[in-house]
Every structure is written in structure tokens, then in C-alpha cells.
Simulated assay, not measured.
Amino acid sequence: MRKPIIAVDMDDTICHLVKRAIYHNNSEFPTHTLRYEEMLDWNTDHLRHPKSTHDVFYGRPGLFEELELYDEYVVEEMEKLCNAFDVIIVTAAEPKTVVEKWNWLQRHMPFIPIENFFPCKRKNLINYDLLIDDGPHNLVPALEEGKKVLCIPHPWNLRVREQYEFPVMTSWQGAKERIDSILGVLYK
């Protein structure tokens, strides 16, 4: 019997991208500061400085290697998940960020092999049983396809969470047990 496949996003799911990008934005454009709570949409239309474009906000060289872990439990819980399930990392990436993301993953979670690392923006093209993600553009299609999801809550997915009532995971503490209960039917 095959193990269930758990697809896990990287940015703002196992590490904090937006908070770090805001830090750099506010350092570079102190007259046009941003706050995490104001990030109500997935796009970057909220950037206030004319020189702060999507490419500037997310394109700082080395940005993806300096991201902080989501919380103190994420590494331990991801390792538990990898021991029990077929865990794949499915992350949107531009060619210049793929190596940075892989380097970050190997520094923090070296137990994830390269064959389980998928740079892919359109996650609905990947086969999995459960998706852990923060992006509404990934969660909604997965749910509509009948797949199980766990949403990492952030301001940019609040409206969609209210509309779809996704199961939410605010901390990685106890993630393995929670996922066991969600996927229990797949073991039968």
C-alpha cells in the first residue's frame, strides 16, 4: 500500500517570506513602510513606493536563504511527517530562486531528498492527498478537486478562509497527529 502524499509549500508555510520581504522593503523605503497585517491580498498592489515592485519586493538576492523557520516546531514535525508519509515540497520559484530555496531547505531540513523538491507554481498539476499551504490560489483548486487541505493562516488568505472554511493550522506543534487524523481514512 502506498503512503499518502503530503504536499507542503515553503514560503509562509514552513518559513516566513513576507515578513522578511517587508523588513527589507521598510529598510530600503522608510517613507513608505508596510505592515504584515496590511497584506490582505496575494498580489503586490499594496506596495507603496514606486520603486518597490514585485521583483524588488521578492527579488532581493539571497532573500530565500535568510528566511526564518515558521515556528520552533516545524523541523521536528516535518521530520515526523517524512518518516510516516511521502512528503514533497512544492514551492513556487523563479529560476533565480530555486537554488536559494534548495539551500534553505537543506540547511534546515536535510532529511528531505532532492527528488521530493518540486519548484512548481501550479500545484494542481501535482498528485497529492493533502496540501499544506497559505496561498488561496492553491488551496481553493485543491479543495474543489476533493483533496484535503490545511491552511496556514495569514492576512492574505483571511477572506478566502471565511468563504471556504479551510481547516487551519496556526502552529506546527502536533502537526503529525493532526494530519494522522485527517488522513485516517486513507489507511483503511
Rank of each mutant, 00 (worst) to 15 (best):
N116V: 00
E100C: 09
L105T: 02
P50H: 09
N83K: 08
F57A: 07
P110L: 10
I126V: 13
H46D: 06
L105Q: 02
P4E: 04
E68V: 14
I132V: 10
A7N: 04
C151G: 07
L150T: 01
D86C: 01
E144P: 03
K19R: 15
V75Q: 08
L81H: 02
F64H: 05
R20E: 07
V98M: 00
I152F: 11
H108E: 09
L17V: 10
K176F: 12
A142E: 03
N83Q: 10
Q106C: 00
T91P: 03
G62W: 04
D133M: 04
P155Q: 04
G184Y: 12
T13P: 10
N138I: 05
D134M: 05
G184T: 08
W172Q: 07
H24Q: 08
K80L: 10
P61F: 10
M78C: 10
H154N: 07
S52C: 15
Y73W: 11
A21I: 11
E177V: 12
V87N: 00
W172T: 03
E66N: 10
Y73R: 04
D11P: 02
P4T: 05
N25S: 12
P110Q: 01
E77L: 01
T97V: 05
V90E: 02
L143S: 11
L63F: 07
I89G: 02
R48Q: 15
F85I: 13
C120F: 01
V87W: 02
L158Y: 15
L69R: 03
D9I: 14
V87S: 03
C82F: 06
E72L: 03
T53Q: 06
R20W: 02
Q106I: 00
G59L: 12
D41G: 11
F111K: 11
V99C: 00
E72D: 15
N127C: 00
V74A: 01
P113C: 06
Q173M: 09
D55K: 09
T170I: 11
C15I: 08
E77T: 04
H32P: 12
P61N: 05
I6W: 01
M10V: 06
M1L: 09
D11N: 11
K101T: 04
L17H: 06
V160I: 14
I112M: 12
E72Y: 13
F118N: 09
P141T: 06
Y36H: 10
R60P: 02
F166Q: 03
V185W: 11
F111H: 12
W42Q: 15
Y58H: 14
E68Q: 09
E79M: 12
D129I: 06
D55T: 09
M78V: 05
H49G: 05
H24D: 08
T44I: 00
C82V: 07
A92H: 13
P136F: 08
I126C: 06
V149N: 00
L17K: 09
D129V: 14
L40G: 13
Y128L: 14
F118I: 14
D133F: 00
T31M: 11
L81D: 00
V140C: 08
G59W: 11
P95S: 04
I132E: 00
Q173P: 04
A93P: 06
V160D: 11
G184P: 08
Q173N: 14
